[in-house]
Every structure is written in structure tokens, then in C-alpha cells.
């Protein structure tokens, strides 16, 4: 199944036409919790037609600050109200010194941060009474690293036992910005934990820097990396097309969804032929 991020920028057009045909929708709970009126009506319309996944922005799982348990309880209620199938968050921090920053900052790749983040993931899973998936974020600089990004992610997965949200575009962006081979990175990941995949476009703003904008179409090298990841994974997991800015015609988004489905279908079919 391939879904789309349900964005207010195209919600109305999407719900009034059949051009875009995702298998599910994903929203950030922060944008919908406690919301009524027009947008609640739109969300309710969407929920009648599509399953929902949640992808959080503000839980700040990697923050030195205490977890915001009141907010987490609201997320729990929202999961229950909407029947959301997956709740994922970012392996990053968005709050520090008791101040929200409204963006995703990189956690230092250190042993103590592995322990800290893992404990918090377990705390979140305990409160929600469900497993969460953690996304590898794009980052533009490391901070005081003691280990590689790959070692850090695998250590968190091993210690917390949570699922992995494999954002293939982020791996591509990070491999470019930090000079590593994205295929080797995927080879090194604890791939069995992958339960969900994100795909998106990005923007190269300098010879040595790509920004994860979610504002462009997916480029071929990222499709190729996706194909590689699916062949490596050898299981059918939900895939999300993220498009947050610079929204094109819905037909273009549908074309990307179909492209993702074809790649996944072909990659999984070839394996089943091979094992038949």
C-alpha cells in the first residue's frame, strides 16, 4: 500500500476528485489534535475513505528535556479517536531548555544518547501501549559524534526494540551531505525492524549540501535506492509519498504513487519467482 501525506494545501481538491488514489493518509497529530470546525470536517471526510497513519513532529524523543506526557496522552486519545494504524516519530529533538523549536535537530551520536533515547522510546511505547516507528532524519551537521550515524541508529533499534521508519530520501540526502555510500548504509541497517517507508523529493542548494524539502518530485537515484531497499527488505511494508510544499497537480502525485507501487511490486515479484 502507498499513501500520501494529507496536507491542507490540497485537502479540498483531493477529497472532491478521484485523481489522487492513495491507499492511506498520513498526518502529523500536532496539526489536528484539538482542531474542530472546517478542518475537522475535512479530516472526518478523509477518515471515512482512508486508513490513517500518524507521523509526529513535536514529541522530541531525543531531547534532554523530560517527555511531554500530557501531550503524549493527547496523541494516545487522537490515535484512539481516528483509529490510526501507525504512530511514528523522528530520531531527533525539537524541544530543548523548555522551549519548542518547531524543527528537527540532530541528536549527538553518543552512547549516552543511545541509552537516553531508547529509554524514552520504551516509555512512549509503554504509555501508548503500542510499538512506535522511529524515522532516520536528514541532518546537515553532526554534533559531537562518538560513533557513526549507522552505529547510533542500530544501537537505538537494538536497545529499544522499536520499529524503523526508513526514509529513503533522508538516507540519500545524508549520504550526499556526509559523504557515504547510501547502499552500504542500507546494507548495514537492522533492516528487519523496518515497518514503514517514506519517500520524498529534496533540493540541492549548494555543491555540498542537499536540503530535505519535501517540495520537489522524487528523483531517479532515490527511486533506485528505494528499489534496492525493497529488494533487501523482502517484505511488503506501507510506503508514503511526502509532499509538503510546492504542491503540483494531483495527477503528478498520483503518477509518483503509481511509480512507487510498480517498483515495489516488481521488486517483491522477482523474489517470489526466485524462491518458487
Amino acid at each position: 500500500m502507498t499513501g500520501i501525506g494529507f496536507r491542507k494545501d490540497f485537502a479540498e481538491e483531493f477529497l472532491q476528485s478521484s485523481v489522487l488514489q492513495p491507499s492511506f493518509l498520513e498526518v502529523a497529530p500536532e496539526n489536528w489534535i484539538g482542531v474542530g470546525g472546517y478542518w475537522k470536517k475535512q479530516l472526518n471526510k478523509a477518515l471515512k475513505r482512508y486508513p490513517l497513519f500518524l507521523h509526529g513532529l513535536s514529541l522530541s524523543i531525543g531531547s534532554p528535556d523530560p517527555l511531554d506526557l500530557d501531550f503524549l496522552r493527547k496523541v494516545k486519545t487522537f490515535i484512539k479517536e481516528t483509529g490510526a494504524g501507525i504512530y511514528s516519530e523522528h530520531l531527533s529533538y525539537a524541544k530543548c531548555d523548555n522551549a519548542h523549536l518547531y524543527d528537527l535537530l540532530p541528536v549527538p551520536f553518543t552512547a549516552d544518547a543511545v541509552d537516553h533515547v531508547s529509554e524514552r522510546i520504551l516509555q512512549v511505547q509503554d504509555l501508548l501501549q503500542q510499538k512506535i516507528a522511529i524515522e532516520i532524519v536528514s541532518y546537515y551537521t553532526p554534533v559531537a559524534p562518538e560513533m557513526t550515524e549507522l552505529e547510533f541508529i542500530n544501537a537505538v533499534l537494538r536497545k529499544s526494540g522499536c520499529d524503523l521508519l526508513l526514509d529513503v530520501n533522508n538516507i540519500y540526502v545524508n549520504s550526499f551531505n556526509h559523504h557515504y555510500d547510501p547502499y552500504q548504509f542500507i546494507d548495514g541497517l537492522t533492516i528487519d525492524n523496518v515497518s514503514y517507508i517514506h519517500m520524498a523529493g529534496h533540493l540541492k542548494i549548494a555543491d555540498d549540501l542537499i536540503i530535505d524539502t519535501h517540495g520537489e518530485a522524487i528523483i531517479d537515484p532515490v527511486y533506485q535506492l528505494f528499489d534496492y531497499a525493497i529488494r533487501k527488505l523482502q517484505k511488503d511494508v506501507p510506503v508514503l509519498l511526502e509532499r509538503d510544499f510546492n504542491i503540483p497537480d494531483l495527477a503528478e502525485l498520483q503518477h509518483e504513487i503509481l511509480q512507487l507501487e510498480k517498483i515495489k511490486r516488481d521488486a517483491l515479484k522477482e523474489k517470489s519467482y526466485a524462491t518458487a
Partner: peptide, 20 residues
């Protein structure tokens, strides 16, 4: 293992930079 003071400080410094 608790988050070390050094890690906490690094995170705080980056956050402060983003704010100021």
C-alpha cells in the same frame, strides 16, 4: 545511562543558536 552533561550542553548550545 543518563544523558551526560556534555551531551546535554551540546544539544542546548545548538538549540540556543537556533533561537538566537
Amino acid at each position: 545511562m543518563q544523558l551526560l552533561e556534555t551531551t546535554r550542553n551540546h544539544q542546548s548550545e545548538l538549540a540556543k543558536y537556533c533561537r538566537t
